[in-house]
Design a protein around this nucleic acid. Structure first.
Lengths: 203, 203, 203, 203
DNA sequence: GATGAATGAGGATTCATTCAT
DNA sequence: TATGAATGAATCCTCATTCAT
């Protein structure tokens, strides 16, 4: 549950390929995909830029692989929550905590997802991004809807707007959240839920 | 209060320069600054890329000018609100309504501000972005703080976290808000405030 | 009717574009398309390789343009002959003389046509090569067929084989024919026709 | 006397080396030498590109070996014919039949010889190509000359032009001849000789 | 204001080749 | 024999920018 620091690989079994993907993810996230050169990645890895093509077919390929793995994991995590027992509110709690934990654990992948979704829209073979996003949206909307039906959540708000507000707030925090800072991700989640559930007004 | 459509200039007095800036803003916002080529802008304007340099010293210059004008306007608008009479909650309402209205009226500039702030951080002569952002932050924090002191707003939440949550939600909506859609910006603002003030829970 | 020497342009109205195409044609013909680098062409033109892209979209584009112009001209020349009055044998004479004259006048384009047809087959937007070749084949076959029917030409040979034999002989001569040598193209044509008409045997 | 099909080796005694040369010959002939990558060859052979270097010192080496073997065989075959008894016309018949048979049996090597001779001219250690070609030319010219002296062949044509015309026609047919088609190589040879000997004119 | 030609630096990608294992 | 990782040079192409006209 501790964030990767430096160039430690994410969850790739020590393979060279996975190691390179980790480096690429960090650079893509930090500088932006199109501002990151293949040479930047190679330099960071200590090899020549041409050598990267022994492992990947293209720069785009690296981005695709990083995003694919991330989105598959994310969907699986959310689906696991929505599939378990629990009241809608409990499930919603878990979704939000998981999202903030994901930001903590995989900040580069999240940043990529946040920042490069637009770029990716125009590229071929990135259809999975939109599709998985939609599945995730349906999952969250299902939980919100269920909460309205049980009477836990208010029903006088546009649920799709509510979803967008929440989604944007949660994922945007990747921009300012510091995995190595004093503010822990579960505290952020807790504060967000406190504000979201109770509202900003006193009394 | 109607959004610009097509390539109509924002508030530039019909000058060629302003017209070109409008085109650039739209392209920068749509494709991203670094994915937009000087030729793209020139093509859209119906001239050759070299000719742009009669109007601007560089591509970066265009971005700077667009952002500068936008941020100055934005700060002025917010400062006007905070300087007027009214309870903190009334002022806060006005800030949020103004932000959503700005997204409606100047979607490209807002998108640029949202998406390119990171890029811009490393460039010279873009210090005003960070500085103005800070001033805006202080304004909003002042209003939130005042609301806590009058007892209108809850005081059991980290105010700086609250600010970030709100800021991110509001500005992120530029990604999905459609100025020409059915959902009007004041409705979005209203829904957001309803959720924010009253909380998500029923009862 | 004298062949181009050095880097003189073919028939391009003194334009820079045409001048560059002439240089490219010569190099493509001499070294082969894929062995000729964009830099080779630029060097020969006295500019930087990137500057070529001000005039052409790609290296492939240059090849296409060269071949297109050549094949259109060639078809027009042959069609003119087949459309005029004259016995089949007179027309056939003219076709052969024209072919050898073309080799003399535009040796680079002919060499390209001879050598790069295979490469070109797999590339997009080069369909015109095959199509025009087919039209030319039909023209020549028409004349040969007409000659058989008037009794001028033998009718005990496979006409399509005869066409291939002739075509291959004529165009292959681009490999050894020297536009600036002693052996003039009309002499070559004359000798070829003498052998073809009369046969190799004495008596 | 049947053509190789698929990737069966030519006359290499089942060795791995010979097998690889066969694959290389086919690819070089089909795509062109410089368009064929070492990886293409390795892929086709089911190994990694680096592994090819256990068998050959370089890509150029493969080409050299293929051409060397081919040209030596070809010269030997032609020399055998010219060394045997028979009238010049009988010898000439045999040369032509042998050439077409060679196209049938070793189409890839012939295609390489036809297409890559130019490339090869500039490379070191490929001098044998020009030298052997010259020996072959002398052989054929000898037979043609002998035929003129015996009165079998016409003597009013430039003999070196006649040779070039014949050589180009024969070897060019590798481009369209299909070893597995209906048209057999001996029929092609027969038709060619009929046209060449008797001429195109009726009567 | 605009054109058209060119620059020069860099960017992704290819590929023959090497070499430790 | 073969692998897998890497090299290094070259290739096509892009693009912000300059400048004479």
């Amino acid at each position: 549950m501790t964030p990767r620091t430096g160039r430690a690989p994410a969850k790739n079994g020590g393979t060279r390929r996975g190691e390179l993907l980790g480096i690429a993810a960090q650079l893509f996230a930090t500088r932006g995909y199109s501002q990151t050169t293949v040479r930047d990645i190679a330099d960071e890895a200590g090899i020549l830029s041409g050598s990267l093509y022994h492992h990947f077919a293209s720069k785009e390929d690296m981005l695709r692989e990083i995003l694919k793995e991330f989105m598959d994991d994310l969907l699986a995590a959310f689906a696991g929550i929505a599939g378990k027992d629990g009241t809608p509110r409990e499930q919603f709690d878990a979704l939000v905590y998981t999202a903030f934990a994901t930001i903590h654990e995989r900040p580069f992948a999240v940043a990529l997802y946040q920042n490069e979704s637009a770029v990716v829209g125009s590229l071929a073979d990135f259809g999975f991004v939109g599709k998985t996003s939609l599945k995730i949206e349906k999952l969250w909307l299902g939980v919100l809807q269920a909460g309205r039906e049980t009477g836990e959540f208010r029903d006088d708000l546009e649920v799709s707007l509510v979803y967008r507000f929440i989604r944007d707030t949660v994922w945007s925090s990747v921009r300012w959240y510091n995995p190595r800072g004093k503010l822990r991700h579960d505290v952020v989640a807790e504060q967000y839920l406190a504000m979201l559930y109770g509202g900003l007004l006193a009394g």
